[in-house]
Amino acid sequence: MPILPRTNSTEHWMITTVVLAGLISGVGRLWPMVIDAGLLRAADGIAIALGGWMLVYALARRLFAKQLSRWCDAPGAARDRYMRRLGPAMVLYMITLVGSIVLIKRGIEPVALRAAVAVVPMLPIAMVASAMVRYVRDVDEMQQRIETLAVCIAALLVSLGYFAGGLLVAAKVLELDAGAAMLWVFPLLCVSYGLAKFFVMRRYQ
């Protein structure tokens, strides 16, 4: 059976984040005066979401080791470099996101400062985007084709979905919070890309 890469740096960062979030959550439960209620909710969310995702991933690794090893069959150096950059960026994203939400909920009067605090989580996401571009540049020609096709399909799916959503909102069939809808663009793009990549890769197996 093909051997999957051992626990990588991204997983180390994720485990550390879940443990930290769990600690904050535990301290908040024991001594509610020490931890801000917003921070406590954020820590709960991170611990549950990230912990749950890691559990599903660990299960998938065990059940679908062969398929996953094919799916992750990028040259070692490219994958390792990507993982080294992805882990810290994702942890930084969670920290900046939680910090930004807590500070904005407490209230920031100057609009410019509020805007700056609100967009701070974009910085680590820009780091992730840069790591993705570097990864695609580093992989071989067939994998570049797979990545490009997967990104194209994902972009089309998300654009079509949002276009349909926009038409339905304009026709007053749906009521959507525009701000929340915009926040979901990047996560939806990532999920669509993952699914598209899975199907595109099947063509070459």
Binding site: V139, E141, M142, Q143, Y204
Partner: peptide, 22 residues
């Protein structure tokens, strides 16, 4: 060749035609 094993497999099975340099 400096490519992934998956690429070699796809070339061997005729599912991927390599570029001229490859």
């Amino acid at each position: 060749l400096g490519v992934s094993r998956q690429t070699v497999n796809a070339i061997e099975t005729g599912k991927y035609d390599p570029s001229l340099p490859l």
